[in-house]
Computed example of a mutant assay.
Amino acid sequence: MNGRTVTLITAVATAASLFATPPADAAMTLGSLAALRGKHFGAGIDVGQLGDVPYTTVLDREFTAVTPTDAMKWDATEPMRNQFNYTYGDRIVAYARQRDMTVQGHTLVWHSQVPAWVQSLDPTRLREAMIYHIDRLATHYRGAVRAWTVVNEPLDGTGGYRTSFFYQRLGASYIADAFRAARAADPGAKLYISESDAEGFGAKSTGLYNLVRSLLAEGVPVDGVAFQGHMAAGQVPGGVAQNFQRFADLGLDVVISELDVRVQQPRTAAKDAQQAADYTTMVRACLTVPRCAGVTLWTFSDKYSKIPYSFPSQGSATPWDVNIQPKPAYTAIYNTLLGG
């Protein structure tokens, strides 16, 4: 790091201490600050948001990576058997390329948002369809995505296998099959397993740890673990960094892939403060672990957050409000990336 960069960071840190929110024209952004720490800072987006100029202005300024929230899922890309539609995913990839953003593909195998025709298949045809779907999708985006969420949410709340239709018909072997198919289709992409509610120590994270360790022992090409990071304010578990580190000690990358912190409505100053503290905890956990590749928000504005649909009495889960104005959580993240 040269003297000019150190001087710039010092000046921005001083400014951040004087203003409740860093000015929109601040010399550094979340993405550039994260890059100085060797991390990406991303946002989950979808094509319907790309025409929203106030939204994309913030997206372009603050973020270095994007994840399509829905555009690459099975129901969007292969709604009918062997009839592929890459239109929405292609638009996001093109948008990212024009702005030098990286893309994380999401997701190749998940029990949700799967067409009915897939769920009706017998075991033999289901395995064939899964491998073919992975091959077509990952081959189409070969070289365009930095990483793939290969298998999403394979475990239940106890840390055992989720009894999805994939598991019921194919057994646990579908996970290894999916990773091997993804590696064959795109040898250059990082391959991640993704799970929810596994950020801290507990039965689920231990189940995930044991699953990943067994996959590695079998030579399955798992490169990393995506911890989603869907949090309720005031309920971030302890030991997040230590939990991340035990996965990193297996030789794996870790990422926070879908971070949001929901609050009970209505929003208040006290709830904003708690949310800001929780975002600080999660971002700092990533900064603490050298093999944490980065953080992705899901998404960055309450205008497009899906939290109110999943949790009707909760919301305000992101660092920007419905008018795409920064909240205290933004300042907290900014200052944490500065080294606070």
Rank of each mutant, 00 (worst) to 15 (best):
W74K: 01
R291M: 12
P79W: 06
P123H: 12
A15G: 11
S194F: 03
A20Y: 10
A276R: 02
V150W: 02
Q119F: 08
Q49Y: 14
Q235M: 11
W110V: 00
K204P: 08
D52R: 04
P308S: 09
H111I: 07
T206Q: 13
P68T: 14
G339T: 06
Y167P: 01
I45W: 02
R81H: 10
A185I: 08
G160V: 01
M282W: 03
A233S: 15
G234Q: 08
T107M: 06
F244E: 00
D122T: 13
A269E: 05
L215T: 00
Q275F: 00
Y132P: 07
H230T: 02
M130V: 09
G238N: 14
D302Y: 10
G340L: 11
Q49F: 12
V289E: 06
V225E: 02
R162S: 12
A270E: 15
R37M: 05
D321N: 14
H40R: 13
A24M: 04
D249N: 14
Y167W: 11
A203F: 04
D156F: 01
T67A: 07
Q264W: 07
A11T: 11
A65K: 12
N210Y: 02
Q113V: 01
P23R: 06
T281I: 11
L18C: 13
R142T: 13
T280P: 05
V47I: 15
R162V: 05
L250T: 09
F227S: 00
K327L: 06
H133K: 02
I307F: 03
T5K: 02
V150T: 03
T5L: 15
T288N: 15
Y209W: 14
L337A: 10
V6D: 04
L211I: 01
D186F: 02
S214D: 07
P266R: 01
A35D: 12
E199N: 05
E218F: 04
L216C: 03
L108V: 11
N152I: 07
T268Y: 00
T77V: 15
A273C: 02
A276N: 06
R97H: 13
E78Y: 03
R183V: 00
V66F: 05
G224P: 00
P79E: 12
R136A: 11
P237F: 01
L208H: 05
D25H: 13
D70R: 12
G38M: 06
A26P: 02
R136G: 04
L170P: 06
A269Y: 00
A178W: 04
Y309L: 14
D272F: 00
L215H: 03
V295W: 05
A233G: 15
I134D: 11
A172E: 15
L137Y: 06
P319R: 03
E258D: 06
I324Y: 06
S313C: 04
T29L: 00
Q265M: 14
A65T: 13
G219N: 14
A198P: 04
A184C: 08
W320M: 01
V66C: 11
A11E: 15
L287Y: 03
F311S: 13
R213N: 10
A94M: 03
M28T: 13
T57V: 10
S196E: 13
D52I: 04
